[in-house]
Amino acid sequence: MIDLIKALADPCRLRLVGALLRAELTVQELTQILGMGQSRISRHLKILTEAGVLSVKRQGTWSYYRAGEENAFFCAIRPEFERELEKLPERNDDLAAVALALEARRRRSLEFFDRHAAQWDVLSRTLLPVPHYLDRLLGLIPPVDTLLEIGVGTGALLPELCLRAAKVIGVDHSPAMLEEARRRISSDGNHNAELRLGEMTHLPLADGGAGCVIANMVLHHAADPLTVLGEIHRVLKPGGALVLADLARHEREWAREQLADQWLGFDEDELKGWIAGAGFGSVEIERVGAGVGQEAVLLVKAIKAGIRKPGARD
């Protein structure tokens, strides 16, 4: 308790914790948000991490900081602590700066995919090979009326998805990607597919509008994965399923620049904790092992907690 109180007894460290309660951020992003030098920010982060207030996740040469759960006393006082943070004079400016940092991540991703849409399928397969997993992923999809795919990309999965649901909605934030997907469904005659422009963090779908959401190799491109998972939970019906495939944790640092990856894959326990924290009542994860020169893949099926009326369809 004494170590915690000492760690928090500094205006700069209070602002740092306040920012990291909203998102996972790098040292570079935090220097911009607080308008301070890197050495000063790093020193304060070290104090907070040693006290168990923050935790750090290292991915390649980047380190992401977030509010931790190692200090039991901090966890106990956290609700009241967060309310008091709103009284800091810099609070509104700090929150606005956090939003700008996340927007900068999103903008870099959008510009990349608009630029490489036509070559994306070949580019992704060539630069970062993965084992064959699509048959197993598709096998996780339950029978539903409405299926939503986020990060639809060039629409490579749409023909298969259209065989599994009466209505398929594909969402992507890149107009160029959607144009490629539109060409695909037009040539394949998938008349039950509808494409919509939208962000993963603000899906263009009403609450409970889908019986299943599929996210294939999408989450590692998200600026804020926790917000994305919460938004998926919102658009699912009670009892609806999240079906997800993504990269297991790896160390190919170049993927940030060459493939616009925000995250170098995910640890199984971390991903399971995030999904459960978003409100899903059942989470199952299967690891598809990697061959030579490949990266392993995590397959996830999670069910939104809730009770459906007897006989109701998705």
Rank of each mutant, 00 (worst) to 15 (best):
M1F: 11
D3S: 14
A7Y: 06
L8H: 00
C12M: 15
C12Q: 14
C12R: 15
L14T: 06
L21G: 13
L25S: 05
E29T: 12
T31K: 14
L34A: 13
G37H: 03
I41W: 12
S42C: 10
I47E: 14
T49W: 10
G52N: 06
G52T: 09
V53T: 08
L54W: 10
T61F: 12
T61R: 15
W62S: 02
R66Y: 12
A67Y: 05
A72R: 15
F74I: 06
C75F: 11
I77G: 09
P79R: 08
L85Q: 12
E86Q: 15
N92S: 15
D94S: 07
V98G: 12
A101N: 04
A101M: 00
R108V: 03
R108N: 14
S109H: 09
S109P: 00
F113Y: 02
R115C: 06
H116W: 13
H116Y: 14
A118Q: 12
V122L: 08
L123Q: 09
R125P: 02
R125A: 10
L127P: 00
L128H: 10
P129R: 07
P131K: 01
H132V: 08
Y133V: 06
D135P: 06
L147F: 13
L147H: 11
L148V: 14
L148N: 03
L148D: 08
E149R: 09
V152Q: 06
A156I: 08
P159Q: 01
P159H: 04
R164E: 12
K167T: 12
I169R: 04
D172N: 03
P175V: 00
A176C: 08
R182M: 04
I185K: 09
G189W: 10
N192V: 06
E194A: 11
R196P: 05
M200D: 09
M200A: 14
H202W: 10
G211H: 03
C212Y: 00
I214N: 02
N216C: 07
M217Q: 10
H221M: 02
D224C: 13
P225F: 11
G230I: 10
E231L: 05
H233I: 08
V235F: 09
G239K: 00
L242D: 03
L244Y: 01
E251G: 09
E257I: 04
Q258R: 11
L259A: 05
D261T: 05
D267E: 15
D267V: 03
G281L: 01
S282N: 11
V283Y: 03
I285P: 05
G293K: 08
Q294H: 07
V300R: 01
V300S: 06
A302Y: 01
G311V: 04
